[in-house]
Design a binder for these strands. Structure first.
Length: 353
DNA sequence: TATACGTGGCT
DNA sequence: TAGCCAAGTAT
């Protein structure tokens, strides 16, 4: 059996990366703020999905200062549809922290950057290595898949202890001359060659170094237990119109879809009684209650089954976080995809009559 | 350590 | 279709 040749591995990996790397927007930048934003957006999100959001975000908030000074509603609107919205709120809070506590300069030490909201072990290493050429590990799902195969390791990659072990391995084999390219090359390899299913070992620049490939077990790795089925919740939502406005409410500031807007939503029940009572409690009325459509929205851990209704009416005593919005105002507010679907269903239900 | 936290694309 | 997967973090 032969030992792993770190120098040769680095050379083969980096040569491949320098000639084959994709031309991505954030690879044209060296601004730590911009690298940071890209890394937050890329968490659990595909490159192709991120690119248009990144371009718009950089247009809206070109500098750390611009983001720090922006109202949260604008930031959430820019994030609308990207998912994991706490990323946006944490990034916003962290940028304000950098502005006030670090004079606007993104910190370059592991300890300081890791203390920022939304910056975990992966993002800390990614920003430090890519923006500052600090030889810190940036171990994401790609890297764990690549390393599992490279060394034919059957450790469960969903465990934090496994990630830490991989971080130590990276500290041993990272290129000190170009940590940025080394970390990105490992991720790039995982994204385009060493894919979860049907990895392209014949095209792999480091196949000669790969134990799983030699053993023919690459399809068995990495080891990752399957997750359980999401729970289903049955709901009703009401699009209540008055003149040219619609009743909407801002979701709670913590938890699922925090601080995003939605149409009033209740646990499933008898529609007429439920919404009549809903209006009555707020000194209002509903009339012409009409069923519109059924919508299924699948989250990673939850399924919403929503019966959508529309009605006309009024509410004299709206709650603290409720508001009447025109179509134009709704265009400026951030709604989750589930409620964008509802809005579309109601619009098409009224237009085809 | 286990679970909450979004969305869209692919098999 | 149902399940899986993606440049993870917070609690």
């Amino acid at each position: 059996m032969q030992l792993f040749d770190t120098n040769q591995f680095q050379q083969d990996l980096l040569a491949w990366y320098r000639s084959e790397k994709r031309d991505l927007p954030w690879r044209r930048e060296n601004d730590p703020y911009r690298i940071w934003v890209s890394e937050i957006m890329l968490q659990q999100t595909k490159v192709d999905t991120v690119i248009p959001y990144y371009e718009r975000f950089m247009n809206d908030f070109p500098t750390l200062q611009a983001l720090a000074e922006a109202p949260e509603e604008k930031v959430l609107k820019a994030w609308e549809g990207l998912g994991y919205y706490s990323r946006a709120r944490n990034l916003h809070a962290a940028v304000k922290e950098v502005q006030s506590h670090y004079g606007g300069r993104v910190p370059d030490s592991e300890k300081e950057i890791h203390q920022l909201k939304g910056v975990g072990p992966y993002t800390a290493g990614a920003v430090l290595s890519i923006a500052y050429q600090v030889p810190a590990p940036a171990v994401d799902g790609n890297v764990m898949r690549v390393l599992s195969r490279l060394f034919s390791m059957y450790d469960d990659i969903t465990k934090a202890s496994t990630r830490k072990m991989f971080e130590e391995i990276i500290r041993d084999i990272i290129s000190e001359e170009d940590p940025s390219s080394f970390n990105q090359a490992l991720m790039e390899l995982g994204a385009v060659i060493c894919t979860p299913t049907s990895p392209g070992c014949l095209l792999c620049p480091v196949a000669d170094h790969c134990r799983a490939s030699a053993e023919g077990v690459q399809e068995l790795l990495p080891v990752k237990p399957k997750k359980k089925a999401p729970k289903t919740v049955h709901l009703q939502s009401l699009v209540l119109s008055s003149e040219d406005a619609v009743l909407v409410e801002k979701r709670p500031e913590k938890g699922l879809l925090a601080n995003l807007w939605q149409f009033p939503m209740l646990a499933d029940g008898e529609p007429e009684a439920m919404w009549t009572n809903y209006a009555k409690q707020r000194d209002g009325t509903v009339r012409n209650l009409t069923y519109v459509a059924h919508i299924r929205h699948v989250f990673s851990h939850l399924v919403w089954e929503i019966d959508v209704y529309k009605a006309e009416g009024s509410i004299s005593s709206p709650e603290e976080r409720q508001a009447w919005m025109t179509e134009a105002q709704m265009d400026e507010a951030a709604f989750p995809v589930s409620h964008q679907k509802i809005r579309e269903e109601v619009q098409s239900s009224s237009s085809d009559r």
